[in-house]
Design a protein around this nucleic acid. Structure first.
Length: 554
RNA sequence: GCCCCAGUAGCUCAGCAGGAUAGAGCAUCGGAUUCCUAAUCCGGAGGUCACAGGUUCGAAUCCUGUCUGGGGUACCA
């Protein structure tokens, strides 16, 4: 390793420059402003750029370019890291990395390996991500799929940032929905016995209901014929459906740490405890036979019923009680992932938490938009009850797990996702997942050839042979990975990672086309082997976070 | 009526901690393979960033209004 290099400083060039500039501003008696760096789009604009001079133009009533000049005059960059500083355009200050820095950073990436990209900003903190949370009334649909993959990936990102993460699934196996489910199975069972039954429209129409009925018939024969209660039907259905859901999730690589049953909130007294607290603190009142929560006192437009006149709680009450347990369990960061159809429920829950005296800002509610499924140009409407849905399992059968995960992640969760099934099937060879995985497989192939030829990267001195534009661009992109991990985590924008990885793959493929790795020049070969190993690490780490496999061959 | 999300290339979508010449994939047109995987690469064409105002040295990005699409607005969840 280059003795001159301070590796600790290496990956904090940005932070280092920021600090330096802050000091400089102070020396010049300029106002203290937030210093932001960006990566310019054009190479000629440098590797890091800041607009501080333009920000200061107004308060100082000076020309931004002359402000920039005063600032750079004070900066004494270490040539080991920064080769050049320029003022450009209206007053940007552009920094150029030195080749030396870029070359040596390849070594750093290889050394960090599977750890490259991790950071500590969540260290010592507990985070919980609640997602999917579908009641066991049927197989998971494609809509659930988007949420499942998003939630799991967000959890992965948090782990990469040092959080201790709990993945949690909240469900309700009581209530009307489940009664209808049990009754649906009972009616299908009676049909199997040859009875003519009228099957109501608002019951669950799916084929899986018949499967469950058949299972019961196999096990019990016609002995359940007289059962008027649907308890056995219901519990069997719940058990079978839940098993099915768990299998689907497992196929997607998702494992939950906690399945939280709403029923426990009643049995443990959490529900009563909330009611009592609300009543004792004048946060709730009786009206028209119902119990109302004074949510208007917490910024809501209207008060909300939490116990109906029938004596049954509305969904808000258990939701509030449930979220209280999240605080009581000591989570520092609480993430709720909901579909757009639940957007109205969370303000009530947050208001409830405030009423209970908790800091609701620790709860981050993420809303994702819907998935609209297209079969060709035809829109498919998805409804579990009507059973005209394509299940998540069926999707995975068609396109595979990697494509499923990637496609759900590649769009911003704020955007409606148009998923054209026939396109995903027919063009599965043209899609970005394979493009990215191919880059990884190609690297593995070269590494196999290198091993056979007994060439390996041994000496970091050889890295100085890296200077081809394709090489330098690739290195710069790789160096961006840690920033990206942090940004995706902070902003909950996993889709940026899919985009980034595609950029890495593009630059790698370009490098591959222009630069041969295994050559007669063993020093150059060593250096390029190092570069592709670094690239492989970044791709593999990115895939790992997204839950996509990193194939060695394709 | 009110609230949330979206409107950017033919299609699907990035970009929206205000920045320099608005991008990618697909589709389309034209090129590249004696050599580490062509599931690849290079190039062309394609734009009133829905519309109208405003803030700013500077707006696809921020603010206001309008239009269009989706979701919500229950003593359903």
């Amino acid at each position: 390793m280059h003795a001159l290099f301070d590796w600790r400083k290496m990956f904090r060039i940005e932070a280092f420059l920021k600090q330096t500039i802050e000091t400089t501003l102070k020396d010049l008696s300029f106002p203290n402003i937030d210093i932001i760096f960006e990566t310019p789009k054009l190479d000629t604009h440098g590797d890091l750029s800041t607009n501080v001079a333009m920000q200061l133009a107004r308060p100082l009533k000076q020309n931004p370019r002359s402000i920039a000049e005063q600032i750079i005059a004070k900066l004494k960059p270490d040539p080991a890291y920064i080769s050049k500083i320029e003022i450009a355009g209206p007053g940007f200050i552009n920094f150029f990395y030195s080749n030396n820095y870029l070359q040596q950073s390849v070594e750093h990436i290889i050394k960090a390996g599977e750890q490259f990209g991790r950071n500590n900003f969540g260290k010592g903190k507990k985070a919980q991500v609640e997602f999917v949370s579908a009641n066991p009334t049927g197989p998971l649909t494609i809509g659930h799929g988007r949420q499942a993959v998003l939630g799991d990936t967000i959890a992965n990102f948090l782990e990469w940032c040092g959080f201790q993460v709990t993945r949690e699934y909240y469900f309700n196996n009581a209530g009307r929905q489940m009664r209808v489910l049990g009754e649906s199975v009972r009616l299908r069972y009676l049909e199997l016995l040859g009875e003519l039954v009228e099957f109501p429209d608002d019951h669950y129409q799916g084929e899986y209901i018949k499967d469950i009925a058949r299972q019961l018939h196999r096990k019990y024969g016609d002995s359940l014929k007289a059962e008027q209660e649907s308890d056995l039907f219901k519990s069997t259905a719940e058990q079978m459906i839940f098993q099915d859901i768990k299998n689907t999730l497992q196929r997607l690589g998702i494992v939950f740490d906690v399945f939280f049953n709403e029923k426990d909130l009643y049995e443990q007294g959490d529900i009563d405890r909330v009611i009592r607290f609300f009543k004792e603190n004048n946060l709730a009142y009786q009206k028209d036979g119902a119990l109302w929560f004074r949510s208007t006192e917490f910024g809501q437009e209207q008060d909300r019923v939490i116990v109906k006149s029938t004596g049954e709680p509305t969904y808000r009450l258990p939701d509030i009680a449930y979220h209280r347990t999240k605080y009581e369990r000591g989570f520092d960061l609480i993430i709720d992932l909901f579909g757009a159809d639940h957007i109205a429920t969370y303000p009530d829950v947050l208001a409830g938490l405030q009423a209970l005296g908790y800091d609701s800002s620790r709860t981050k509610v993420l809303i994702h938009q819907f998935v609209t499924l297209y079969e060709g140009t035809e829109k498919v409407r998805m409804s579990t009850r009507k059973a005209n849905f394509v299940t998540l399992d069926e999707l995975m059968d068609e396109v595979g797990v990697d494509v499923t995960r990637w496609f759900f992640l590649m769009r911003s969760m704020d955007s409606h996702l148009n998923f054209d099934l026939s396109l995903a099937k027919s063009q599965s060879e043209e899609n970005p997942v394979y493009y990215n995985q191919y880059a990884h497989a190609r690297i593995c192939s070269i590494l196999r050839n290198a091993a056979e030829a007994r060439i390996e990267y041994r000496n970091s001195e050889t890295l100085q042979h890296l200077h081809h534009p394709a090489e330098m661009q690739l290195i710069k992109k790789l160096l961006n990975f840690p920033n990206l991990v942090e940004r995706c985590t902070r902003d909950f924008t996993p889709h940026l990672m899919t985009q980034y990885l595609s950029e890495v793959s593009t630059l790698f493929h370009k490098f591959y086309t222009e630069c041969r790795v295994l050559t007669d020049d063993t020093d150059l070969s060593q250096a390029r082997l190092a570069l592709i190993r670094a690239t492989k690490a970044v791709l593999a780490n990115g895939f790992k976070i997204l839950g996509v496999t990193a194939p060695e061959r394709m």
